[in-house]
Design a protein around this nucleic acid. Structure first.
Lengths: 106, 106
DNA sequence: CACGAACGTAAGCTACGACTTACCGATGGT
DNA sequence: ACCATCGGTAAGTCGTAGCTTACGTTCGTG
């Protein structure tokens, strides 16, 4: 298993179906059935994926009558965004800024 | 499976071991053996992960004598960065910019 | 020229995750 | 009160990703 203590959002976005769900939710908030209609998987499969995305803090849900509307969570996405931005910035300047000093975050 | 035509980088970063490798490479360029020493997996395992990361365009390798030094690829990371930034921005403003055009009725 | 170091690849095993069908609870309308 | 809709959960199957060991190859060094 070996969790490495990484943000669960990366594993959540690693699945193609979940990334597709996130892409749909980036366009508009959706109920479970709507997502299942647009995707080549069953509705329970979508439900399970949403559970993972919710556990990773990437989506939030809201009960509307008998339906549950899901939408993206800005706070959850910002964590991944910042980390990926760090990777990109480090790679961009050719590791120039590493020479001086190191500050760590576990 | 069902590829959805997504960027392969998401699946590449979805594995905890590969994310750990990327984190190490974000600090400094590394050879395969160096990464294997810092990680709880064997050297061939690291090699296979690097192959996936390279296929996704997230890392580039350079032969230095008998060693292969890997480092992050800015261009590969920027694609993921932009997409994740789009997700984040859409979620942040509460889908305000979508309301005008799209209208659904069931 | 031979030996060791560093790496990639092949083969094989194992475990986990993604998916399905079936079932059940909750909500809303008539 | 009844029924239909919507969604989460359980149980079970199956594919495949990830890991290891073993081997082949390249490069540098004595």
């Amino acid at each position: 298993m070996v969790t490495y203590g990484a943000h669960p959002g990366w594993e959540a976005l690693g699945d193609p179906s979940r990334l597709a769900i996130v892409q749909r939710l980036a366009e508009r908030p959706c109920a479970v059935g709507e997502l299942a209609d647009e995707l080549p998987i069953s509705r329970p499969a979508v439900s399970q994926h949403l559970k993972v995305l919710k556990g990773a803090g990437l989506v939030v849900d809201q009960a509307v009558g008998t339906r549950r509307v899901y939408r993206l969570s800005p706070v959850g996405l910002s964590a991944l965004r910042d980390q990926l931005d760090t990777f990109w910035r480090r790679a961009l300047n050719g590791y120039q800024d590493i020479v001086d000093e190191a500050e760590e975050s576990s």
